[in-house]
Design a protein around this nucleic acid. Structure first.
Lengths: 95, 95
DNA sequence: TAAATAGGTTTATTTTATAAACTACTTTAC
DNA sequence: GTAAAGTAGTTTATAAAATAAACCTATTTA
């Protein structure tokens, strides 16, 4: 019953989990928005977004707005699945 | 509302969380029991139990049974509180 | 045109998690 | 009785992660 399934290390990280939590409820989100909501530093966020993208959990699109760089993120279906699995597994630990 | 409260780093670790999860439902638990249930190595478990003890989240008692060393762990009230807080904070991330 | 700001990335440092090696003692097999 | 294997861990070393600091490029403001 309450066996401890391994927790996806990519999601078992405060910042990456917060990012995924935000993205799962949104169509897309900008870098600065994620930075503000998670209260993270740009450097840390940049690194963690990279990891999520490399895992295929999010998609990152780079463009320009008003001549400035704009990074927009969105969750992928793989990311949604991973997040849901993570939450499901986590329940064994906290209930 | 859904602001991301920091997650106690001492509990945001798969093995330590599993240990706390087990201990919160038990009066006490032996080292070998925790090792089996969490499927961890003795070395890793030993290190993580130390950290939980140093944080005051668990109490570790050492004795002998049948001439062999016996390590018994139990959760403290501080540990219960920390676990409950952790779970409460975590909900912001996963719901 | 110099300084400040925006929007990041890269590199370096610190912290963690984990595994490997070791210790100390006990039991079993020869 | 002694060598080998097993029990119950601890300590040390290594790998991986999180985080912070420094940096970069371009833009805006003074």
């Amino acid at each position: 019953m309450s066996t401890f399934k391994p927790l996806d290390p990519l999601l078992h990280s405060q910042l990456r989990l917060a990012v995924m939590s935000l993205l799962i409820g949104l169509d897309e989100a900008e870098f600065t928005f994620l930075k503000e909501k998670t209260e993270s530093t740009a450097g840390n966020l940049s690194v963690q977004l990279d990891k999520l993208e490399k895992a295929g959990y999010i998609k990152i699109e780079k463009s320009f707005r008003d001549k400035r760089p704009l990074t927009t993120c969105s969750i992928t279906s793989l990311g949604v699945k991973a997040f849901e699995d993570y939450v499901e597994n986590l329940k064994n630990y906290i209930s």
